[in-house]
Design a protein around this nucleic acid. Structure first.
Length: 502
RNA sequence: GUCCCCAUCGUCUAGCCCGGCCUAGGACACCGGCCUUUCACGCCGGCGACAGGGGUUCGAAUCCCCUUGGGGACGCCA
């Protein structure tokens, strides 16, 4: 399958979110790509919660991430592990680096550094820590230690002019960075707590991660992490950085600026099928070699490959305030197409959940009305985009408590006052039919229209609005057929009152 | 400011590595038409892009350089 990677056996990948907010689309996409890679290689997908930011991490956020992944169907094989549980390992790694002189104690204070940074900013030159504590004689270090002076631990980045850090990225290719362009970065705070750059690398090593698939915002950090791996004597994993997804103003996606529409939970609430979201997300930055866009899980796992991840950022085409395109239109297209074409057996449970949620579910839909329910769902799904459409636009099929659209009333019920007589009479005729069916109803309606000398369309459109409250929907006679005589007759009678008198 | 990455229709993208098959293909959106009792679906058609400039070459979307534009990283955040 992937001979190039066969020595990474088994493949182990991870999704490592920090629980400081909601699971958003970018995170979901990262999780998806990792999951796909694990499944494709019969590898392991593990979940690691990077909760070392004590101030911002919350239990609610952890739950939201777990719920979101579960809903998406991105099942993990190990974890969730919590980064905070392995703090001692991170500290231990820092000690090792210190001993091997790959790291050193820095006694510069925050205030001193801040002042330097400010000065550099004022002079418009780049600030980089000058490494002044690197050459501190051992005697001075001991002295400072004895005095109990606080210190951070910094990585001693190779400074000679030729030294470079090189790594291979599965998406971006061979990347190289000069040691001179890398600051002696802090790996342990003055209070002894390790920093992300260290913890993350150490955890990946301990979890035996073979492929780090993450957002391109991690790209600039990678050389530092490679340095840590090298210092620790560990072979670095394969990196695969995925381009970021931006909004249509080219800004990074965030809940803070974009609101709920970038959270996974939002799509769940708005009637998305989890897989259609995955399918859409997969195509935001990746494409198959054969141009296919719709994939089953198995097909996507088969087709997915890190090397076909695009290097350019993609845009989540969300325009605030557009009622029809309330999210990226292509995402809606995916969802609608799935709803309209997926096997009915798979759709039915989703519709059930939706109707239950809306309080219009009837257990008989699984017993004596089972066939009716199937046919009805099949009839109306062709015009729906989301699962919620079944309980909103589709409400008239499952409940008598549906709303009337004002535009539809105006268009189909208000232009012809004689409908006040036509509709009840039509109801009467349908009620008298020996057997009620769409075809029989059609014959009766057309005959009646002829008798009255009006166009069949007048009665058809009026009847549509009378029984469904809207001006759109399936063919009228299919509608009548599925709604059944009783409902149709009752609704036609009732609609009389909606028609203005002359 | 410094370092790094990126650049094809409005959006997602194919093509780029291995120049010629590209008068640049597909999808979404949009606009027309057909179908039709409505609205969709479906089908047919349309609009619409190689950021700019230099090279290299018989030939460049594809290779090189510059410019411009966009993004990311530069924390004792993750």
């Amino acid at each position: 399958m992937n001979d190039n990677n066969s020595h990474y056996n088994p493949v182990r990948v991870r999704f490592a979110p920090s629980p400081t907010g909601y699971l958003h689309l970018g995170g979901a996409r990262t999780a998806l790509y990792n999951w796909l890679w694990a499944r494709k290689n019969q590898g392991v997908f593990l979940l690691r919660i990077e909760d070392t930011d004590l101030e911002r991490s919350t239990q609610d956020s952890v739950q939201e991430i777990l719920d979101g992944l579960t809903w998406l169907g991105l099942d993990w094989d190990e974890g969730p592990y919590f980064q905070s549980a392995s703090l001692d390992k991170h500290v231990e790694a820092a000690e090792t680096l210190l001993q091997k002189r790959y790291a050193y104690r820095c006694f510069c204070t925050k205030e001193e550094l801040e002042a330097q940074r400010k000065e550099a900013g004022a002079k418009k030159v780049a600030f980089m820590y000058d490494g002044r504590c690197r050459e501190l004689p051992a005697s001075r270090v001991d002295e400072n230690l004895a005095k109990g002076l606080p210190y951070v631990i910094r990585f001693a980045v190779p400074r000679d002019s030729q030294s470079t850090v090189v790594f291979e990225d599965a998406v971006y290719g061979r990347l190289e960075k000069k040691g001179q362009d890398i600051e002696d970065f802090v790996i342990v705070r003055s209070d002894g707590r390790p920093l992300y750059i260290l913890s993350n690398a150490v955890d990946d090593a301990n979890d035996r991660i073979t492929h780090v698939i993450r957002g391109a915002d991690g790209l600039a950090n990678t050389p530092k992490q490679v340095l840590i791996y090298e210092g620790l004597g560990i072979v670095p994993p394969v990196f695969a950085h995925m381009p970021l997804t931006l909004d249509n103003k080219k800004a990074k996606l965030s809940k803070r600026t974009h609101g709920e529409v970038v959270t996974v939970a939002y799509y769940r609430r708005h009637g998305f099928l989890p897989w259609s979201l995955c399918n859409f997300l997969a195509l935001l930055g990746w494409s198959s070699s054969d141009g296919r866009e719709f994939f089953s899980r198995e097909e996507l796992i088969e087709a997915f490959d890190l090397s076909r991840i695009n290097r350019a950022n993609s845009i989540f085409n969300y325009v605030p305030g557009d009622a029809k395109n309330w999210t990226d239109p292509k995402a809606i297209h995916f969802n609608a197409t799935y709803i309209r074409t997926m096997p009915l057996e798979q759709l039915i449970p989703c519709v059930k959940a939706e109707l239950q949620n809306a309080g219009i579910w009837d257990d008989a839909y699984e017993t004596e009305k089972r066939e009716w329910f199937r046919q009805t769902v099949d009839l109306i799904r062709a015009r729906f985009f989301t699962l919620t459409d079944f309980s909103t636009r589709g409400k008239c099929y499952f409940s008598d408590e549906f709303d009337f659209d004002e535009q539809a009333k105006k268009k189909n019920l208000s232009k012809e006052p004689r409908l006040r007589e036509f509709l009840p009479e039509l109801a009467h005729r349908l009620d008298s039919l020996p057997t009620f069916s769409g075809a029989a109803a059609e014959d009766a309606l057309r005959e009646y229209a002829e008798e009255e000398g009006v166009k069949a369309g007048l009665l058809i459109n009026a009847a549509r609005t009378a029984v469904s409250g809207t001006s759109v929907g399936p063919g009228l006679f299919e509608m009548l057929d599925t709604m059944g005589r009783q409902r149709v007759v009752a609704r036609l009678m009732k609609a009389k009152d909606l028609i203005p008198e002359e």
